[in-house]
Design a protein around this nucleic acid. Structure first.
Lengths: 211, 211
DNA sequence: CCGCATCCTCATGGATACTG
DNA sequence: CAGTATCCATGAGGATGCGG
């Protein structure tokens, strides 16, 4: 664990726990779903394997994550504790704050479709859901993210294999621009591929924000 | 500037900008008020002066902070840009998340009364304000933090020298426990010193949360 | 294979002295 | 006062090893 700030301040103590490099990205992965060591390593391109092991130990000691035994028996699965799951708010706050950094496009950075789950969740959460419920797949590269109506608005998550009313495919940059309201669907028609119920797709990206 | 994560992910890009050690603590200081170099150094015990200078440069380059000329003429003052001020949400989220780390008490850590401003702001913000407006000073050590009613609830900030309806003095740990709702005022009567209008103090710490 | 531990190199952080 | 310059300790990154 890195050096403590030694300050009796909530932010400093929070950063003593999750401020070290890679820690919040590990939390990001686990906010989507519990995962095995290898899955974490795959979802965190660039992490050194010894650092990942170190950080998992630190976070477990601090009570942010816990090791569970997978259903298959002896496999270890890492998951957030209830307290660790409380990091969703500040993490989503940082994601919303980062919008200006994302609409510039990916540059040469790594990208994984699953990384759209949290941004879509938080950017679409306060959209008013339409009358009839829908489930839409948002596809980038080879991945598919599920966006659907929920009791209180719109939710995103990993694709669960269930039926979809529609599938939208576009570059990640465009998907984020649409979700953030920086782009309108009609402005990028040629860059977006829509299959299925177009009305459902419009409900995702063009419905007014509750504000 | 530290090594980039190289991930096209909002959280990773946000941390590329503010994830380096000390960066968010500098933002914490500037969320309270613009400050000069020396004030930042004083408010960040433990920071090395070269690191502070480095970080201020990085944050300015990234567009999080800006250098301003003070009213007195040639003095430089650091302040958040509008985008940088948008970090208030995730920072307050981390502060709320850190409550379990704070109610354990200060241990041997440094403490400054001004560090209560952000926690009091975010922990009391959704308390319903009483009918008549009040201004209460919360005192720890030698410092005094202002808590007052606002149009939409309760606000905290640096003491502005104006008249106060009451002053409460207690240890920082107790103040935070009261604000977080972990302690009730009557449970710690002997440890809290109240001057002035006690009803105003009760309005700060005992009014029901809006939930 | 998966889940780490070890080793080595180099970038970053920390403490202090120094300068315009 | 507002930073630079310097030096040393520490942590990150990458390759590889190793037991289950």
């Amino acid at each position: 664990m890195s050096r403590s700030y030694g300050q009796y301040c909530g932010l400093a103590r929070a950063l003593d726990v999750v401020g070290d490099r890679w820690n919040l990205l590990i939390v990001r992965q686990l906010l989507m779903s519990p995962a095995r060591y290898r899955e974490l390593r795959d979802g965190l391109p660039g992490v050194a394997t010894n650092l990942l092991a170190d950080r998992l130990r630190d976070l477990e000691t601090a009570g942010v994550i816990e090791r569970r035994l997978a259903e298959e028996g002896n496999a270890v699965v890492y998951a957030l504790t209830p307290w660790g799951a409380g990091l969703r708010e500040p993490v989503e706050g940082l994601i919303r704050w980062s919008t200006p950094l994302m609409i510039r496009g990916p540059g040469g950075d790594h990208f994984r479709a699953e990384w759209l789950v949290l941004p879509l969740s938080t950017l679409l959460a306060d959209r008013t859901a339409t009358r009839r419920p829908w489930r839409v797949g948002v596809g980038v590269d080879d991945g598919l993210v599920l966006v659907r109506t929920s009791h209180s608005g719109v939710e995103a998550g990993p694709h669960d294999g269930g039926d979809l009313d529609a599938v939208v495919r576009a570059d990640a940059q465009i998907v984020l621009g649409l979700a953030a309201g920086v782009l309108a669907l009609d402005d990028v028609r040629g860059l977006v591929d829509i299959e299925g119920d177009e009305a459902a797709v419009r409900a995702v990206f063009n419905s007014p924000t509750r504000s």
